[in-house]
Design a protein around this nucleic acid. Structure first.
Lengths: 248, 248
DNA sequence: CCTAACTCCGTACACCTTACGGAAATCGCT
DNA sequence: AGCGATTTCCGTAAGGTGTACGGAGTTAGG
């Protein structure tokens, strides 16, 4: 929990050249900061952020543990670099269609990003490191509804809403997927184990609505939940709600 | 990552008496499972789930580390117990008003719960432990829109949407609060440190829309964001969107 | 050519969860 | 009353984590 080195980290983010302060006296670095960031992303992609460690990154690079601190100031700053890097790895498609199409694209972009790198879910940074790719993305998101008739304040609130929703929905999807992977159990198998125990332990008749709705949903989804459909459903509601705002 | 003990954990959840299997031969337990759960919640409330550890719980109880494993099977199961416990700590108010009022109450309940126990944000359980308080809450949430004219499937989707949104919005709020606490810095101070560095490092004129919107929002919020307002704004949009569904 | 600067890394510290096994306490049964 | 089964509590240890510190070796500038 050291006070983060703002100058150094922002310099790393915005021009990925200078790994160490500046001077060029000693031995050359064996790898680049980009290598470090890419290796770190690979580790996080494979094992998640909980299992992500500085040791695993250096192992992958053929360095020993402590060398990594000559490339990046610490774990938290490295994660900041990883986030901006994956934010930029796919270009942002040019906007077209009406604002509904565009906001759908914004939501889908967030959804895809979380699915490509599920560890983004596990990040809990206090305040974001502002990097070039994150800034480009925010500009692109706002541009989606520029000129559609919203006030500046509404534009910010709308993007916050849509992006927040997409992140939450993607989170649910990723969690469901990870549950299946990590337990080696499908929703159905999990339910088969839990249901009989619950039947013994739950007071019968105490949950009439849950029982009815749960059964209908379970049959429709063939699972506990259907994250894709939740995303679709929620996004349509939200867009309808925004449309109502426009017609106020 | 052991296979969790479903029988034992569900038994703990649904009737909090039997700490150990059953027999009553050996020495009495010095504290109760409830004591353990309450102490654990106190630790998590004070220090967050990242800093939460079995040792801190036993320290607080006057036990030594390993004794805790005679009360609960492991860390993950203890967290399951903590979640159900805090879910039940405030009663669920009876529903009144129309479905909009009721869904607002549902969203607000989630919002409050996350603010009362911010560590809920940090939980990443694969699949939930189904306990009595969680089950009561789900039933209450569904009851909010029972009879309002939605299909059973829509009911599930609406609750998923509203609860997911409220959780995400509360998360943003809690994160902002924690950022201030843990860094001892307000948004304004944080910006004062970052802005001059960013000015040097960002290509000028590259972010016209962000700059304009960011300025308006910043002046209006007196901060980077205004989580309360985002919650309000988002909830109104979502309710409007649901209303549009009802009038299809 | 020497010295300042830099990279790489060994060691150490303070944490974490939990597996294992032993000592002590308690109850049920003979 | 006393023994054996059962259970609690806990000491130890293994295998993880991030990072502070300082030393050895390499390189380039003056």
């Amino acid at each position: 929990m050291e006070k983060p080195d703002v100058d150094r980290t922002l310099a790393l983010l915005w021009r990925r050249t200078l790994g160490a302060p500046q001077g060029s006296r000693g031995p050359k670095q064996r790898v680049s900061v980009d290598d470090v960031v890419r290796a770190a992303i690979a580790v996080a992609d494979e094992e998640g952020l909980a299992a992500f460690s500085m040791r695993k990154v250096t192992d992958r690079l053929g360095l020993k543990l402590m060398s990594i601190y000559t490339y990046v100031p610490g774990r938290s700053e490295l994660i900041g670099l990883m986030i901006d890097e994956v934010t930029g790895e796919t270009g942002l498609p040019p906007h077209d269609g009406d604002w509904r199409d565009r906001l759908t694209a914004v939501a889908r972009q967030v959804w895809d990003e979380y699915h490509r790198h599920p560890w983004l879910l596990q990040v809990e940074e206090h305040r974001p490191w502002i990097g070039p790719n994150g800034s480009d993305k925010y500009e692109w998101q706002l541009a989606a509804i520029e000129g559609a008739g919203f006030t500046d304040l509404e534009m910010d609130q709308i993007i916050t809403l849509v992006v927040g929703f997409a992140a939450g929905a993607a989170g649910a999807s990723v969690r469901a997927r990870r549950a299946a992977e990590q337990t080696g159990m499908s929703d159905a198998e999990w339910w088969e184990i839990n249901a009989p125990v619950l039947e013994r332990v739950m007071p019968p008749g105490r949950y009439p609505v849950s029982a009815r709705v749960g059964q209908v949903a379970g049959e429709e989804y063939n699972a506990i939940s259907d994250p894709d459909r939740s995303f679709q459903f929620g996004l349509e509601r939200i867009l309808d709600g925004i449309e109502a705002l426009l017609k106020r």
